[in-house]
Design a protein around this nucleic acid. Sequence first.
DNA 1: GGGTGTTTAGTAGTCG
DNA 2: CGACTACTAAACACCC
Length: 300
Amino acid sequence: MDGHEHLDRSSGFFYRETEGSSAATNSSYMNAHGITGTCYMNADYVNPVGVTNPSVSGQSSLLVAAGVASMNPPLQSAGPVLSPGFGPICSGPTPRRASTYAKPPYSYISLISMAIQQSGTKMLTLNQIYQWIMDLFPFYRQNQQRWQNSVRHSLSFNDCFIKVTRSKDWPGKGSFWALHPDSGDMFQNGCFLRRQKRFRSGTKACTDAQRSGSGFSSSPQSKQVHLNPRRAEVVPLQHYHYQQAAHQNLEPNHPHCSFSHRFSISSLMFEQQNQTPYLPVTYGGDSVLSEQNHPGSFSH
DNA sequence: GGGTGTTTAGTAGTCG
DNA sequence: CGACTACTAAACACCC
């Protein structure tokens, strides 16, 4: 954190201290209650700066569905900041333009999960995850060393992420990272704001047999699988993820998910499939999604 | 050498 | 209040 920006994980709101305010953590909560600071809602997370490709609308719809952003964030609005379709979120006394980007209300685990899930191959390299996060959330274009360290830590530390090592036939830097097949119910109601429970590999029902025949061979003592690009091109795991997601918490009609949360991946997928084609955002010619079928071709 | 991956430690917020 | 979760920092090893 910057020491000036604070996330209220319970509400999903992000608070920014006014200039000159103390960096002490206590003051942030005074701000959160509207005493001295300004409350920003989701529409402030993504800024169109650097977005020049009109195809961004597709991604915008996805983000709006997630409650993340409008591509026209009310940075200069004088009244209460509105969340798209959800009414006033916070009515701080002196809303002011954000000098920097607000931190998204997602944990790193959420961000990584979203990046992986929305990728065509359901697995990304570390650098691809970095890029996805930075492309969607300008906040993360700063202090990269700090949050990228946290991302690496999250990938290693959390059992919900599995490392897919490259085969010798597929050389390159770094491994691919995928979601554990049984990690689908981590997020309450599919909401990415906060995990319902921590995924632990000890509870996993995914066996080596499930992975066998899919191009993956599992290392029994680690959360590592091996990718054989000749054999399966990760498609089976991809399907497995889709089915897992669709029939677990990601399905709006699932008994454990009686509503479609606006921060849920189901909302993202619904928007993507039924409203606006999910076109890649292009920054400097690099496409976030253009390499969906070519995970190894993503380079920056 | 830089990127990647692992691990440990400390701190803080959330939840039951 | 304790357990859990998340974030951050740091150190270290490995690999391309």
